[in-house]
Amino acid sequence: MEFYRFDQESGKQITKFGSDFVMSRIIQTSGNAHIGCMHIPANGVVGYHQAVSPQLMLIMTGAGRVRSGNDDFIEVKAGEAVFWENGEWHETISEIGLTAIVIESEALNPSAYMTPKESGL
């Protein structure tokens, strides 16, 4: 399990064409990708299961905890991303609820675009 940032501080200020915004790059794929939005309610859970392909979860709002294998749960919040490899067992829970964009593709390489989250998770 790997952790990344896509918050405003990890992005780049864009001013071209009179623009004024920050772009946090996330991913580029060369193959098929499935992209969805997951809404986990308060006290919700995405049960312990095996990833059927590499999977990147981008937390947009809220917060929760994730685990991989038999590891302890690790807290995650809006602006952070979690990457699971194909076949990796994992689970997500949230006491307050969270909304996340989930990208699944064999061609994912989040470290090519996103800033790794500092250790001390």
Rank of each mutant, 00 (worst) to 15 (best):
Gly18Gln: 03
Met114Asn: 11
Glu118Tyr: 08
Gly79Thr: 01
Ile93Glu: 09
Gly64Leu: 04
Ile96Tyr: 06
His39Gly: 06
Ala112Leu: 13
Val22His: 00
Ile103Tyr: 06
Ser24Gln: 07
Ile101Cys: 14
Gly11Pro: 00
Gly18Arg: 01
Met23Trp: 04
Gly18Asp: 03
Gly47Glu: 14
Thr29His: 10
Glu106Val: 00
Gln13Leu: 10
Phe17Glu: 05
Phe3Gln: 10
Ile74Cys: 13
Asp71Pro: 12
Trp89Asp: 12
Leu121Ile: 00
Thr115Arg: 08
Ser119Asn: 10
Ile74His: 11
Ala51Asp: 05
Ser94Gly: 05
Ser10Lys: 00
Ala51Val: 03
Ser68Trp: 06
Glu106Tyr: 14
Tyr48Phe: 13
Phe6Ile: 01
Lys12Gln: 14
Thr115Trp: 01
Thr99Trp: 09
Asn43Asp: 15
Asp71Lys: 10
Ile35Thr: 04
Ser111Pro: 11
Gly31Trp: 00
His49Gly: 14
Met38Arg: 15
Gly11Arg: 01
Met1Glu: 12
Phe83Gly: 01
Lys12Asn: 12
Phe3Ser: 06
Ile101Arg: 06
Gly64Asp: 02
Phe6Lys: 02
Gly120Lys: 09
Thr92Lys: 03
Ala107Met: 02
Arg25Pro: 15
Ile35Tyr: 03
Ile26Tyr: 00
Pro116Leu: 10
Met60Cys: 12
Gly44Lys: 02
Thr115Asp: 06
Glu91Gln: 13
Tyr4Gln: 12
Asn86Ser: 04
His49Tyr: 03
Ala33Lys: 02
Gly62Asp: 08
Ser10Phe: 00
Glu80Ile: 01
Glu2Gln: 11
Gly97Phe: 12
Ser68Thr: 07
Lys117Gln: 10
Ile59Pro: 02
Thr61Ala: 12
Val66Asn: 03
Thr115Ser: 07
Asp20Val: 00
Ser10Pro: 04
Glu104Val: 01
Trp84Glu: 05
Ala78Gly: 14
Thr15Tyr: 15
Phe73Gly: 09
Val66Gly: 04
Glu85Asp: 11
His39Tyr: 13
Tyr113Lys: 03
Ser19Asp: 10
Ile27Leu: 05
Glu75Pro: 01
Gly97His: 11
Met60Ile: 14
Ala42Met: 15
Arg65Ala: 11
Ala100Met: 08
Ile14Asp: 00
Glu85Cys: 03
Gly120Ile: 05
Gly97Pro: 12
Lys16Trp: 02
Gly120Met: 09
Tyr113Met: 10
Lys77Phe: 06
Asn43Lys: 12
Tyr4Phe: 15
Glu80Trp: 00
Lys77Ser: 09
Phe83Thr: 05
Gly36Leu: 00
Ile40Met: 14
Phe3Ile: 06
